[in-house]
Design a protein around this nucleic acid. Structure first.
Lengths: 142, 142
DNA sequence: AGTTTGAGATAGACATGGTCTAATATTAGA
DNA sequence: TCTAATATTAGACCATGTCTATCTCAAACT
């Protein structure tokens, strides 16, 4: 009970999230966090701007970029280079892979355990810090 | 003997390569092919422009972009989304993986057989056409 | 040879993603 | 309340990449 309540307060509230990371919670930052942490897609900065402007019409490009980069620094988001021409932001910061639909450009998360990669430790010339598999193809209609 | 000679004529000569692909071999296109197929790095279009201009000073951006895209269409190059902000071109069109040095941004090819990936066939929602592993870390000094 | 034609090359306009800066607004704290 | 620090803003700026109108040139035709 009190555990659930603590969780709700400390984790799901954009305001609390910002405070826990030591970021001053301004209305603009709260709006960005609110949107990005619930986004199912992998939005670009300009897509975030567009959406957040619906609720916070005066927010500037610079603020959105600043906020997103701050969230990446603090580890709440991960910037991914998956699309031509733009970085996308991923609120899933656990290890996982990505599938890119060749037709739509949509990006889907693939759970870490769905694939197994071996051999990366035997790369003598390289010290690997992280890796992921990027898959491309078509999504089957369900 | 004659096999080697045939190879030299038909494969290594930029002029012959272009002809074999059905691309009109102009001096500009030859210069681009000459540079890109011997490049060890993974240059961006603008890096190609910069280098090719040393030999062919009047070549325009549009021509370089057109030529590179043409070579990708014909399968002589592969465009890779590995860096923020720009596509890079890879003259290695066989299957392989990539390692990205976090300090320098340099990209290194990892042979296909150095890593093994399993499980991609069991992704029920996705029809996988291709995949690769992207690794990041530091290159060990040799 | 002179002309036509069409592919290719060119410069520069345009669009977009992203950073930087200078001015303004807000906040926290004494 | 006053001040200093921090955040926001608009817009300048830069880079990557595409598009378009014009120009060049070589081959084909008379």
């Amino acid at each position: 009970m009190s555990k659930l309540r603590l969780y709700l307060i400390s984790m799901e509230n954009p305001l609390s999230i910002l405070r826990e990371c030591g970021i001053q919670p301004t209305p603009q930052r709260i709006a960005v966090v609110e949107y990005i942490l619930n986004a199912k897609a992998h939005p670009s900065a300009d897509q975030v701007l567009e959406r957040v402007r619906q609720q916070c019409p005066t927010i500037s490009r610079a603020t959105v970029y600043n906020t997103l980069n701050l969230l990446v620094e603090k580890g709440l988001l991960k910037a991914q280079v998956l699309k031509e021409g733009t970085v996308v932001f991923d609120s899933n910061v656990k290890q996982h892979h990505h599938f890119i639909d060749e037709d739509t450009g949509n990006i889907y998360d693939i759970p870490w355990n769905a694939l197994k990669v071996t051999g990366e430790k035997s790369l003598k010339d390289f010290q690997v810090h992280e890796f992921q598999v990027i898959l491309r193809g078509k999504r089957k209609r369900k």
